[in-house]
């Protein structure tokens, strides 16, 4: 049984009001106002001058369960939205392994599902651990990226990217204390939306029109695969593209918006594949998940991939032993929670 044993989040300390990013993003005043008033975005967390390695290390450093358990980590995986992050042959993931004493682990990047890759990584490493058959083995999943080029800064009329990062320890095996159990995963590829939304207006419109239906399909498929109905779902952890798109999806599937963790949308930015983990941390820190709660996670990636996952909360795992630290930013300021 795949389980999220612990999730840690790192939010860069620098907050940029979206108005301050207008020039960088090539946005007119009207577009900025639209993002703020209609999409519900206010500010974005960025780490100017920091590297991808810095982001990932900062997230991993907040895991209580990693230190002392390095020998148990078999896989270190970067769940990455952008197909390319650094010039070849730079390999920040390998540098991270060296820095954290994980050189013995098999490290690799999963990508090409854009911002839906985080859910893929959890499912994939869970399967690799299960195949190995060692119930004590762990996998470290990392997510978070630099906004280094226009494709990694803006989804037109939809989202502004941020540089939040996350780290998750994934375990396998049954029984209490193993973390939040993965009940089902659904993913659907829609390569017909491959293209550059910034340049192809028709493609962008088609994608926006189809997005609610396609995301709704995987959300419902994952719930069904778990043998549940939406009434059984306590909480929905979204990706942080914007608030209005989630209201549309919720209306379509009949799920109450108040049970969607939208707190980070306004103040973090869309942090690529890290969003589900950031919102997991927020939900746990805000006390919004009770023991045994089943919750749904949804994500969509440009290109396009739509994915959803159902998990069951296990409060006896170490996920909940360090809530005072994990969602704290570099200045010691607690990130926005659900309280």
């Amino acid at each position: 049984m795949t389980a999220l044993l612990e999730v840690a989040a790192h939010l860069p300390s620098t907050r940029f009001p979206i108005e301050d990013l207008a020039e960088r993003l090539g946005l007119h005043d009207r577009q900025v106002r639209l993002f703020r008033r209609f999409h519900g975005l206010a500010e974005v967390r960025l780490a100017p001058g920091g590297s991808l390695l810095d982001l990932l290390l900062a997230a991993a450093a907040r895991l209580d369960g990693l230190a002392g358990n390095e020998h148990r980590v078999r896989y270190v995986v970067h769940a990455r939205g952008m197909p390319v992050a650094v010039p070849y042959p730079h390999n920040p993931l390998r540098e991270l392994c060296r820095a954290l004493g994980l050189e013995h682990a098999l490290s690799f990047t999963l990508t090409h599902q854009a911002c839906a890759t985080g859910l893929l990584a959890v499912d994939a490493v869970g399967r690799m651990l299960a195949a190995d058959g060692d119930p004590d083995a762990l996998a470290l999943v990392l997510a978070g990226e630099k906004t280094y080029t226009p494709d990694a800064q803006l989804v037109p009329e939809t989202a502004i990217f941020g540089e939040g990062a996350a780290a998750a320890l994934v375990s396998t095996g049954d029984g209490p204390g193993r973390g939040d159990r993965l009940l089902a995963y659904a993913t659907s590829a829609h390569g017909e939306f491959d293209g550059r939304l910034r340049l192809d207006r028709d493609l962008a419109v088609r994608f926006q029109n189809e997005y609610p239906r396609l995301l709704a399909e995987v959300l419902l498929a994952a719930v069904d695969k778990a043998g549940l109905t939406l009434d059984d779902i306590a909480l929905l952890l979204p990706h942080n593209v914007n608030a209005v798109s989630w209201r549309r999806v919720c209306k379509r599937i009949g799920f109450p918006v108040r049970r969607v963790v939208l707190d980070n949308v306004a103040v973090v930015g869309h942090s690529f594949a890290a969003d589900p983990f950031l919102n997991h941390r927020t939900a746990v820190d805000g006390g919004r998940l009770a023991p045994g709660d089943r919750y749904l996670v949804g994500a969509a990636g440009l290109g396009a991939t739509f994915s959803a996952m159902v998990l069951q909360h296990d409060p006896t795992g170490p996920t909940h032993n360090s809530t005072d630290q994990d969602n704290t930013d570099q200045d010691g300021v607690r990130a926005r929670g659900n309280r």
């Binding site: 990508t111 090409h112 599902q113 893929l120 993913t187 590829a189 829609h190 017909e192 440009l302 396009a304």
Partner: peptide, 20 residues
């Protein structure tokens, strides 16, 4: 910048789940 695996899914029978 292209998620080529997903693009290839659209060219492949069954439109499979895809990643790199």
């Amino acid at each position: 910048g292209r998620s080529t695996a997903t693009h290839l899914s659209d060219r492949c029978p069954g439109r499979p789940a895809a990643f790199a």
